[in-house]
Amino acid sequence: MRADYALGGDGGRIADARRHAAAFLDQAHAGHRLPVSARARDLTQLVVSELVTNALRHAPGPARMELRVNARAVEVVVWDSDPTVPTARTADAGRIGQHGLEIVKAVTEDLFIEQEPVGKHIMARIALADTPGGADADRGPA
């Protein structure tokens, strides 16, 4: 299952992207009986928020978000037109802001960043179940 969304340049699009992600996971759970834990749903919305915010804030042109899900994970893929590959900064509790990529790296199973001829894409993978077969695995949307 997958879905693709064009992202506009205003701040409201960040909230729209989070809503799309939540609805996508609701559909994966209800329509395809995939085990979507409340934690996976929350982390997916957090990752979407961070990646989409960065794309809209730092890239000069259009951006897109793709959501993909399989039996064990959801993938959030954000493409933007800026070819600059972001890097996570070293942890600094005194720094205000610029912690987005650190947060994404901390809460995802995998994070891939790849330059393209025009821009780059960032793919973050989040496990659907808290633990394989665990109590939270089939709780569904919160």
Score class of each variant (00 low, 15 high):
Ala15Lys: 14
Gly12Phe: 10
Thr53Asn: 06
Ser49His: 15
Gly31Glu: 03
Ile96Gly: 10
Val36Ala: 09
Ala40His: 12
Thr131Ala: 11
Asp16Gln: 14
Ala106Glu: 08
Asp136His: 11
Leu56Pro: 08
Ala106Trp: 04
Asp82Cys: 12
Ala59Phe: 02
Ala135Asn: 01
Thr53Trp: 13
Pro83Arg: 13
Val74Cys: 03
Arg68Cys: 10
Arg2Gly: 09
Ala3Val: 07
Leu34Phe: 03
Leu43Pro: 04
Tyr5Thr: 08
Ile122Thr: 04
Gly11Ile: 10
Arg13Gly: 09
Ala91Ser: 10
Val107Trp: 06
Thr108Ala: 05
Thr90Lys: 14
Ala22Phe: 09
Arg19Asp: 06
Ala59Gln: 06
Gln27Ala: 14
Gly94Ile: 03
Ser37Tyr: 09
Asp110His: 15
Glu75Thr: 01
Val69Met: 10
Asp130Trp: 03
Arg41Tyr: 11
Arg89Trp: 01
Ile126Glu: 06
Ala137Leu: 05
Val52Tyr: 00
Val69Cys: 03
Thr84Trp: 05
Thr87Glu: 12
Leu51Gln: 09
Thr87Ile: 07
Arg39Tyr: 04
Pro86Thr: 06
Arg33Ala: 13
Ala23Leu: 14
Arg57Trp: 07
Leu111Ser: 07
Glu109Gln: 15
His29Leu: 00
Leu7Asp: 01
Ala71Gly: 09
Arg18Val: 08
Gly12Arg: 14
Asp16Cys: 02
His99Trp: 11
Met1Tyr: 12
Phe24Asp: 04
Lys105Trp: 06
Asn70Lys: 13
Ile126Leu: 14
Ser37Asp: 01
Gly9Gln: 12
Arg89Pro: 04
Val78Gln: 05
Gly94Leu: 13
Arg41Phe: 06
Leu56Glu: 00
Ala21Cys: 11
Asp80Pro: 08
Asp82Ala: 14
Gly100Lys: 02
His32Leu: 11
Val107Cys: 00
Leu51Ile: 12
Pro60Lys: 05
Ala91Leu: 10
Pro60Asn: 02
Leu101Asn: 04
Pro117Lys: 12
Arg18Pro: 00
Leu34Ile: 01
